[in-house]
Amino acid sequence: MTTRKYDDSPGFGSLYAKTVKATLRRAEYEPDSDGLTLELPQATVDQDHLAAYREVTGFAAGPVLPVTYPHVLAFPLHLDLMSDPSFPYKPMGIVHLANTITQLRPIPMHADLDIRVHSGPERPHPKGTIFDIESEVRVFNELVWTGSTTLLSRSPGDPSAHADLLPDPELDASAWWDLRGNLGRRYAAASGDRNPIHLFKLTAQAFGFPRQIAHGMWAKAASLASLQRAKGLPDAFAVRVDFRKPLLLPSRVQFGYKVGTNETDFALYDEKHTLTHLIGKLTAP
Rank of each mutant, 00 (worst) to 15 (best):
F12E: 13
E28W: 09
S14L: 13
S119H: 09
Q42K: 13
H78T: 02
R25V: 14
S9E: 15
G35F: 04
H78A: 03
V20S: 11
T37Y: 04
M82L: 14
L50A: 07
L97D: 05
L15M: 13
T57S: 05
A111H: 00
M82N: 03
H71V: 07
A61L: 11
T100A: 04
L38E: 00
E55K: 13
G35C: 08
S9C: 15
H71Q: 12
P106W: 03
L113V: 02
H49A: 15
V45G: 00
T102S: 09
D114W: 06
T102Y: 02
V117W: 04
S83M: 06
G35M: 07
L81W: 01
V67Y: 00
I94M: 14
Q47T: 10
P63D: 09
S14N: 12
Q47L: 11
V20I: 15
D46R: 08
P10Q: 10
P91W: 03
P41T: 07
R25G: 13
L113D: 00
H71K: 04
Y53K: 05
P108C: 10
E39I: 10
P63F: 01
P63Q: 01
F59A: 08
G13K: 10
V56W: 00
V67Q: 01
L50K: 06
T100Q: 08
R25T: 14
Q103N: 02
L50Y: 08
K18V: 09
P31M: 12
P10R: 09
T100E: 15
P106C: 03
D7N: 14
P10K: 09
P88K: 04
L24H: 12
L97N: 06
D84Q: 08
Q103R: 12
P66R: 02
R25A: 14
Y89L: 10
D48F: 08
D84W: 07
E55W: 09
V20L: 15
E55Y: 08
L24Q: 13
D80P: 02
G58Q: 06
P85T: 05
R116F: 02
A51H: 10
D114Q: 11
G58W: 05
P108K: 09
P76Y: 00
H110N: 15
D46L: 08
A52W: 08
G62S: 10
P70Q: 05
T19R: 09
S14A: 14
H96M: 03
L36F: 06
V64Q: 13
D112M: 12
P85V: 07
S86A: 15
D8M: 11
P70H: 04
K21V: 12
P91K: 04
G58N: 07
T100W: 02
D112C: 14
I115V: 15
P41Q: 06
